[in-house]
Simulated assay, not measured.
Amino acid sequence: MSNTRTILNYLQELQENNDREWYHAHKEERKEAEAAFESFLEDLIVEISKFDASIPLLDPHTLTFKMVRDTRFSHDVSPYLPAFRAHIAAKGKLPIPVGYYIVIKPHQETMICGGLFADMFQDATMRIRNYLNEHGAAFDAILSDPQFASYFQLKGTKLKNVPRGYDKNHPYGDYLKHKSWYIEYALSDDLVKNDMKFLQKSAELCEIIKPFNDFLNTALVGFEMPKRQ
C-alpha cells in the first residue's frame, strides 16, 4: 500500500518552493514521493483490471508525466508543476486509446478523469463526431445515467456551431460541437491522505468512467497516432 500522505506533503512543499535550487536539494524527498505514487498506480491498475479487461498490468513508471513545465509562452515562470500525473490505458500513457487520467495535486485539486483531452488530432475528432452522429442517443444515455451524472459532466473544447457536414438541427448537435470530450472529478486532500479510501474511491470512479471511455474507444478504432517528424 502506498503512502499517499508522503505524496501530498512533498507536492505541498514544492508548491511553496517552486524553484530549481529547492527541487534539486530535495531529490530524496522527490524520489520517495515518486515511489509512493507509482505504488499507488500499481494498486489502482490491479483494481481497474478487475472490471476493465483492456488494461494490462502495466509498469507504473511508464505511465507518469514529467513535472518540468514549458514556460516559454507562459506568464507563470515557475519551473515545475506541483502534481503527479499518469494515464492508465490499453497502450499506456498515449492519449489514444483513452483511459483513466490521474492527477494528485494539493489543495483539493486531485482529479480522477477520463476521455479525450487532446483536441489537436483531427482524425480522432472526426471519428468521434461521425460515431456520435449515428449513436448520439447511446452517448447521451451514458452521460444521463444517475450515478454517472452525480459525479461527472462533459467537458472539452468545442465550436460555437455544429460543424459543417452534420445536421445543424441534430438532436445531439451539442456533442458534435466538441473537439475533445472528457470528464473529471475532484477529491479532497483528506481523502487522498487515507491510502485505502483513496484507492477504493479512485477505483470506484474509474469503473463509473468505463462506459464513457468504451464509447469513445469504439469510435476511435483504427486511429493511429501521427508519426513524429
Rank of each mutant, 00 (worst) to 15 (best):
F40C: 05
Y175Q: 02
T125L: 07
D174M: 04
K177V: 03
I142M: 04
A33W: 02
R30D: 10
F117V: 07
A203E: 05
A25C: 04
N161Q: 14
R127C: 07
D76T: 10
I7C: 02
Y166V: 03
R85P: 00
T6M: 00
E134P: 01
A36W: 02
S202R: 13
L216M: 03
L81N: 15
N17C: 10
P60T: 08
P82R: 11
K93Y: 07
T4L: 05
Y166Q: 03
K227R: 14
D19V: 07
P211K: 13
T6S: 07
Q122I: 11
S144G: 11
A137W: 05
L58I: 12
L220K: 04
S54V: 05
Q200E: 15
N3L: 02
A149F: 09
E38S: 01
E21A: 14
Q200R: 14
T4G: 03
E13L: 13
C206K: 09
Q200C: 05
G173N: 06
P95C: 13
I112C: 12
L44H: 13
L41M: 06
Q122V: 13
A138Q: 10
S78G: 09
I209N: 03
V162N: 09
F65S: 05
L187E: 03
L94S: 11
R72L: 09
V77I: 08
L191D: 01
K227C: 02
R85Y: 14
V77N: 06
A33G: 00
A53N: 09
A124W: 03
M120V: 02
V103I: 06
N3T: 02
L187V: 07
K155E: 15
R228H: 09
A141C: 01
L154T: 14
R164M: 02
E28Q: 15
S202C: 15
Y131P: 01
P163E: 08
G92T: 11
T157C: 03
N217C: 01
Q15R: 15
F51C: 07
L14M: 14
L205T: 09
V221N: 08
M120A: 00
Y23V: 00
K201N: 07
A86T: 00
R20A: 14
F73Y: 14
S180M: 06
A53M: 04
L159W: 02
I102L: 06
Q229T: 10
L205F: 13
L132N: 02
Q122M: 12
V103F: 00
K197E: 15
H61W: 05
L191E: 06
T110L: 06
A36M: 00
S2C: 09
T218G: 00
R129L: 11
Q153P: 04
P226K: 06
M225S: 04
A186Q: 10
F198N: 01
D174R: 09
T71S: 13
E29M: 12
E32L: 13
E32M: 12
M225F: 12
S150F: 08
H107F: 11
M1A: 12
F121H: 11
F223S: 03
D123V: 14
N194Q: 14
F84T: 04
D195M: 02
P56Q: 12
F40W: 09
D174A: 02
Q12L: 05
H26R: 13
C113P: 00
E32N: 14
N169T: 11
V77M: 06
K91T: 14
E13F: 03
E21C: 07
P211H: 13
V192C: 09
F139Y: 04
P95A: 12
A138Y: 03
